[in-house]
Design a protein around this nucleic acid. Structure first.
Length: 719
DNA sequence: TACTATTTAATTTTT
DNA sequence: TTAAATAGTA
């Protein structure tokens, strides 16, 4: 057999991993070392050379996008489709199992998946119905608590309050939430994983079947698995399954979501026979960029340890720019982008990365002014838009009247005279009789309510019933089309004047075409409508703008994981912003921030800029800041500071010129500089204005408060 | 019930 | 600053 296409492009370490015998394998793959390629080639090797049937392989990825890409690459390598190969996210695979075995999983056949937004609403409603003060019991925190427990594989029955009353309340809210989901046939994201785990744990013959079927398990981004995902894998592998897991402990950046790097160590304990291969040769970045990344990450204590190397050139030094403020930072980035584009480069090859989304704003304004096309990743995605979720809620009610989450969402949307009081009455009835909102609505309409409210409620019930009747024979797209019209949503948003209403109507139309192009593939297990609804929850769809347009790419460092760009900017390199204030105190949190920085640096192939602002407007307040400690952790030899104020290449706005020149006239005087005053004591320079002998500075003294002083009289000592 | 004014709080995000 | 949630008013 000719194995050359599968092996020829691999280096020794990669080849060793790909061709390893049927034994557990742990691949520690540094950034840019060909991680995905190893997985793809391993799958092809197993199928084409070892002769494993595609249906015996299970491949798990972290995102739907990664799953699609992996399937595509395997098929391209093998030159044939691999339809029976299961590739998906943990959630997608769990969902698939639960649909197949809904009886054993003790779920209704038409169970619906709720996303985190639905989940939060559900919790808010729960608090209201129990008359619990939501300022003391913050819905987000309850949501976090519930998900964290589920991620650890724990149900409320497993939890002990330890005599802690707050914890007891949390647990009982968890229980109440679980009951609410149970009643409505609702499954949240964490529940998918938990149920799928319990499904196998409690049905040995089912587990045995899947163990027989899946002899080889391939796992991507292993460092980001949480406890329940790991347990699920462990269960499936048993003593015979061959796990092949790939990850990088230095790129674990989702600890706050339950991911645990420790699973890499756990894996070695659980599978003592496991072979370990480290991929340390980097094919992406220059030696300079790698050197910086290596030096930075060496400051972390909890690492397995590895050192990326390249046989490529040193490349350019990393450029560090100290901006005056966030606008100056944006101007700088845009000027460099201009140069880049003017040199004939592709805009899409440049990425501007930042720690938090709020930072994109100034950059966007600048890019718009400069007329440079850009694309922001993240933000609201298609299936998460309010109008789309409204339409989906109608469809969910058509599928299942007891879906309270959907019911509450649209009972008065568009407004039809069912106000807060009426809904409150329904909730009361719901609680007293532990029935769904739908049943409660029917019950109280006939007795409790006054005729006006009752009519409104009955009209709503009739509307849903008639929508269900009229759509029963239709195919998916016509169902959706009928729903958005009959529900009154289209008319409702049409009345919304201006652009917003218009785009909402367009989005609803877009939903119809999404339904049209949707191809169900679990047809035996569920109705096409239910499958479409699940798809909408599990795969929220792309954000804005077309990826293939030639745009500068703006995104957080989190969303940049897995991507690479010839030119990269890391903006807002300031202590408090990055590392983020809320992570600084906790050593684990700080190490995670450092890993995030490592991810950011290693996105760059050729040129890397780091920028920080000495003064930044945050939450409407100007704050002085210090360069990120991460900058100091990169050896000087890799960094070149750019001092822009010495040679200003473009016109600067007058206000700023006066400010910066005022600063230049007084060497040593700069914002953030610590100074000592004979009378007022120690302080920090906050602001500066005026020129020459009139230059005044604003100093925040530790004991005397904030004062404006004329520099020439104040006799400040620099410290 | 629906609109407007005021208050409050503010990472990272995929499923 | 700004977005969202809440309280108050027509």
């Amino acid at each position: 057999m000719d194995v050359s296409p599968i092996l020829e492009s691999l280096n020794d370490a990669q080849r060793q991993a790909v061709t390893s015998p049927a034994e557990p394998m742990l691949v520690i793959a540094g950034a840019g070392s060909g991680k995905t390629r190893v997985l793809v080639h391993r799958a092809a090797w197993l199928i084409d050379v070892v002769g494993i049937a595609p249906q015996s392989l299970l491949a798990v990825t972290f995102t739907n996008k990664a799953a699609a890409e992996m399937r595509g690459r395997i098929e391209a390598l093998l030159g044939m489709p691999v339809n029976h190969l299961w590739i998906g996210t943990f959630h997608g695979l769990a969902h698939r199992l639960l649909r197949r075995h809904w009886r054993e999983a003790r779920l209704p056949q038409n169970f619906q998946i709720i996303d985190s937004d639905d989940q939060l609403r559900l919790i808010k409603r729960l608090l209201k119905s129990l008359e619990i003060d939501d300022s003391r019991w913050v819905p987000r925190e309850i949501q976090y608590f519930i998900n964290a427990q589920k991620d650890e594989g724990l149900r409320h029955q497993h939890l002990d309050d330890d005599g802690d009353l707050d914890r007891r309340q949390m647990i009982s809210l968890y229980a109440a939430y679980a009951e609410l989901c149970e009643r409505g046939g609702l499954v949240d994201f964490a529940e998918l994983l938990l149920r799928a785990h319990e499904l196998w744990r409690d049905n040995p013959e089912l587990l045995a079947h899947y163990r027989r079927r899946f002899s080889h398990l391939l796992v991507d981004e292993f460092q980001d698995t949480n406890a329940i995902q790991y347990a699920w894998l462990r269960l499936l592998a048993g003593d015979t399954g061959v796990p092949f897991v790939v990850g990088d402990d230095d790129q674990s950046i989702y600890r706050w979501r339950g991911a645990r790097v420790e699973h890499i160590l756990r894996f070695q304990k659980d599978f003592p026979a496991a072979k370990i291969v480290k991929l340390e040769q980097n094919y992406r970045s220059t030696a300079t960029i790698l050197g910086a990344a290596n030096a930075l990450i060496a400051n972390n204590n909890s690492r397995m340890g590895k050192n990326l190397w390249t046989d490529g050139a040193d490349g350019e030094t990393i450029k560090l720019y100290a901006a005056y403020n966030e606008r100056d930072e944006a101007d700088f980035v845009i000027a460099r982008l201009r140069d880049w584009i003017d040199q004939g480069n592709v805009r899409a090859d440049a990425a501007v990365l930042y720690r938090s989304n709020a930072q994109s704003r100034v950059l966007e304004e600048g890019l718009i002014n400069a007329g440079i096309p850009y694309r922001v990743y993240g933000g609201l995605r298609f299936f998460e838009r309010a109008e789309i979720k409204d339409a989906l809620a109608y469809l969910r009610l058509i599928s299942n009247r007891d879906d309270d989450s959907a019911f509450e969402r649209v009972v008065n949307r568009p407004t039809r005279g069912i106000g807060a009081r009426t809904v409150e009455a329904m909730r009361a009835h719901t609680r007293a009789n532990s029935c769904s909102m739908w049943r409660a609505a029917g019950a109280i309409a006939s007795d409790e309510l006054n005729s006006r409210a009752a009519n409104a409620v009955l009209a709503f019930l009739n509307l849903i019933e008639s929508m269900a009747r009229e759509t029963s024979g239709l195919d998916l797209q016509d169902k959706v089309d009928h729903a958005i019209h009959a529900s009154g949503l289209i008319d409702f948003f049409r009345k919304d004047r201006g652009e917003r209403g218009e785009t909402r109507v367009e989005n609803l139309m877009e939903l119809v075409s999404a339904a049209k192009s949707f191809t169900p593939d679990l047809a035996e297990e569920m109705s096409p409508l239910d499958e479409f609804l699940s798809h909408a929850a599990l795969e929220a769809g792309e954000g804005q703008a077309d990826a293939w347009d030639d745009c500068v790419q703006l995104m957080t460092m989190h969303s940049a994981k897995g991507l690479e760009f010839p030119l990269v900017f890391l903006c807002g390199m300031e202590d408090g912003l990055f590392p983020h204030q809320r992570s600084i105190a906790d050593p684990g949190g700080l190490e995670e921030e450092r890993r995030l920085c490592y991810v950011g640096i290693t996105r760059a192939k050729q040129i890397l800029y780091m920028t920080y602002a000495e003064q930044r407007r945050l939450h409407g307040m100007d704050k002085l800041s210090h360069p990120s400690r991460f900058i100091a952790e990169v050896p000087d030899e890799f960094i070149e500071e750019i001092r822009p104020r010495v040679q200003v290449s473009r016109p600067v706005r007058s206000a700023r010129r006066s400010k910066s020149s005022a600063l230049q006239e007084h060497p040593g005087i700069r914002l953030g500089q610590r100074v000592r005053h004979r009378k007022f004591g120690d302080g920090v320079i906050l602001n500066c204005e005026g020129q020459g002998a009139h230059t005044r500075v604003e100093v925040n003294f530790e004991t005397a408060g904030t004062k404006w002083l004329v520099l020439s009289y104040a006799n400040l000592d620099l410290m």
